[in-house]
Computed example of a mutant assay.
Amino acid sequence: MAAFARSAPCWVDAQLPDLEAGKRFYGELFGWTFRAGEGPYADACSGGKLVAALAAKQDGRMPTAWGIYFATDDIVATVARIREAGGQVITEPVRAGRAGALAQVADPGGAVFGLWQAGDREGFQKQNEPGSFCWTEVHTREKDRVDAFYEQVFGFQATDLSPDTEQDTDADDSAAAGSAPAYRMWSPAGTEPGPDTAVCGRSVITDAFPAEMPSHFLSYFAVEDCNSAAGNAVRLGGRISAPPFDMPYGRIAVLQDDQGAVFAVLQPPVSEKGAE
């Protein structure tokens, strides 16, 4: 049985100009250790378990960014659905040795993501714990097209949340009331949609952001202390894009590493941690 539900996020990696600098930054920030992967690729481990990878960029035109991969049990069929739904195929499915097969694609708004069909490597061996992946969301200006795309391609079940009220809302009512755009959470097909089953989300890029900001995925890593992680990122040469702030699901900060790759950190609410 696969470790990941079809369409669930299963892996993240960062494409960086300087791999060794990336290992130093994330090794100190998250306590990761590294082992050699395929080619210019370093697997990141937390407590001896795979959590991510860093890769040396092979083309300077590629963005310095974190990439997210979604699990599929039939990568060829998923790529076909992406084309049918108005997405773009950047890299056709290719084998990564015995580890699995991958493809790079983009949604109708231009946000890039990966697909992963597992072979010997399923993906994360640890998540939702400090030093590991815990969430991802697509930021887009093409809300309606993008929502339809992911729900058609992956069969996601949607739950709309108002960032102001923390309550489930109807997106049209929220917009009519002039409130902030609804935040949409997606749960895998076959599950009861809601925060407890959600695996990723969608946020809207409003006019408050620069016009040149492209659609993109933002991935989150769990930390024990959000304020401390933000301070350490700066000490290590990174930057704070959004200072720590509180949300219903924890304390969040958006950061950049010392090479410009953007990511977020999330400190779960005290009640959540205390219940574990």
Results as ranks from 00 to 15, higher is better:
Ala3Gly: 11
Ala3Met: 14
Ala5Lys: 15
Arg6Thr: 15
Pro9Phe: 07
Trp11Arg: 06
Asp13Ala: 05
Ala14His: 03
Pro17Asp: 13
Glu20Ala: 15
Tyr26Phe: 04
Phe34Pro: 07
Gly37Trp: 01
Glu38Pro: 09
Ala42Pro: 09
Ser46Thr: 09
Ala55Gln: 15
Pro63Gln: 09
Tyr69Cys: 07
Ala71Ile: 03
Ala71Trp: 01
Thr72Asn: 10
Thr72His: 09
Asp73Gly: 14
Ala77Asp: 11
Thr91Val: 15
Pro93Glu: 12
Pro93Leu: 08
Arg95Lys: 14
Ala101Glu: 11
Val105Lys: 12
Gly109Asp: 04
Ala111Gly: 03
Ala111Arg: 11
Ala111Asp: 01
Val112Phe: 11
Ala118Arg: 11
Glu122Asn: 03
Gln125Trp: 12
Gln127Asn: 14
Pro130Phe: 04
Pro130His: 06
Glu142Ile: 03
Asp144Asn: 10
Arg145Met: 03
Arg145Lys: 15
Val146Lys: 04
Phe149Lys: 14
Val153His: 14
Ala158Met: 08
Asp160Thr: 05
Leu161His: 01
Gln167Pro: 05
Asp168Trp: 07
Ala171Ile: 10
Asp172Val: 10
Ser174Gln: 15
Ala175Asp: 14
Pro181Glu: 08
Tyr183Met: 01
Met185Thr: 03
Thr191Gln: 09
Thr197Lys: 11
Thr197Ser: 15
Arg202Leu: 13
Arg202Thr: 03
Val204Met: 07
Ala208Leu: 03
Ala211Lys: 13
Pro214His: 08
Ser219Ile: 05
Phe221Val: 11
Val223Cys: 10
Glu224Leu: 09
Asn227Leu: 08
Ala229Trp: 03
Ala233Leu: 07
Ser241Trp: 01
Pro244Thr: 07
Tyr249Asn: 01
Gly250Asp: 05
Gln256Asp: 06
Asp257Phe: 01
Ala261Gly: 11
Phe263Cys: 10
Ala264Gly: 05
Val270Leu: 07
Val270Met: 04
Ser271Ala: 13
Glu272Val: 15
Lys273Met: 15
